[in-house]
């Protein structure tokens, strides 16, 4: 099936990224089909976060190009929602939960324009979806890790985007938040949104995502989870680090391979 170009949420061609002259990613080529939950999996230092940052132009590409819904990122940035790593911001910042969620609306506002009543309504709805509305007036410094992550998620929802890029949303959250997040991701999927999630935990990756992107500086594999989540593919991705793998391979059992 060939989709019209503007329907492909994300197309990356020959992407290479270097950091202080050291290559971090090279020759990444992929086209992401719409309406999928995609996990980006790979060992530490594989360039997972770098990949999603490079898509948004937060890091310069040393070669290649990125297209979002058929256009360069800058022209379609409103259709992309971003959840940065939780530790990337200062949680002692003097703002409350509502202020943070409202930031999700800023991309739609003109220079100097204040968030409207409608923006506040959207922000409240998004907080409700992550069950954080009762905390709207709370200082962000007084939140638990799981609550912080929910606020970040609500902020991304407030962006009302079609493609979401999430950097480690499951790190350091409690079980309740983890299941709340995954419910939310599935709901986004049923609404036809595309979600790319940088993910650390191999054991849950198979259950959470429809498609997996195995990354280790190069793109090792990209495809539907049952096809990609095999011991050979994981071995290639994680190299010799068998200790991490052995358990996962065990749980795989005779299932896929």
């Amino acid at each position: 099936m060939t989709l019209p170009l503007s329907d492909v949420p994300l197309e990356v061609h020959d992407m290479s990224v270097a950091y202080h002259q050291k290559p971090v990613l090279y020759g990444i080529d992929l086209a992401v089909p719409a309406g999928n939950l995609i996990g980006i999996v790979g060992p530490n230092g594989a360039g997972k976060s770098t990949f999603i940052k490079a898509i948004m132009g937060l890091l310069p590409l040393s070669s290649g190009w990125v297209k979002v819904f058929g256009k360069p990122y800058a022209e379609n940035c409103r259709r992309v929602g971003y959840v940065p790593q939780r530790e990337s911001v200062d949680w002692d910042f003097p703002v409350n939960v509502m202020d943070v969620v409202l930031m999700g609306r800023y991309g739609r506002l003109r220079l100097g324009q204040r968030p409207s009543r409608q923006d506040h309504d959207v922000a409240r709805e998004c907080l409700e979806k992550v069950h954080m509305l009762p905390y709207a007036k709370r200082q962000i410094g007084n939140l638990s890790g799981g609550q912080q992550q929910r606020v970040f998620l609500a902020r991304a929802l407030a962006q009302e985007s079609d493609l979401y890029l999430m950097d480690e949303p499951f790190v350091g959250v409690d079980a309740a938040t983890e299941s709340a997040i995954i419910t939310l991701l599935r709901e986004l999927k049923t609404r036809g949104k595309t979600v790319l999630v940088v993910h650390h935990d191999l054991s849950s990756a198979r259950d959470y995502f429809d498609m997996l992107m195995l990354l280790n500086m190069r793109l090792v594999a990209f495809g539907p989870t049952p096809e990609v989540f095999t011991s050979e593919m994981l071995q290639t991705t994680y190299g010799g680090r068998l200790t991490i793998l052995s358990e996962v391979v065990e749980t795989l059992g005779g299932g896929t391979k």
């Binding site: 132009g57 937060l58 971003y82 943070v100 220079l111 100097g112």
Partner: peptide, 20 residues
Amino acid sequence: CFYKELLITSFDPALAKSMG
């Protein structure tokens, strides 16, 4: 006038940049 821009670029520059 630019309270919102100063706020987001101070709190979360990555998000601000991703929004253009």
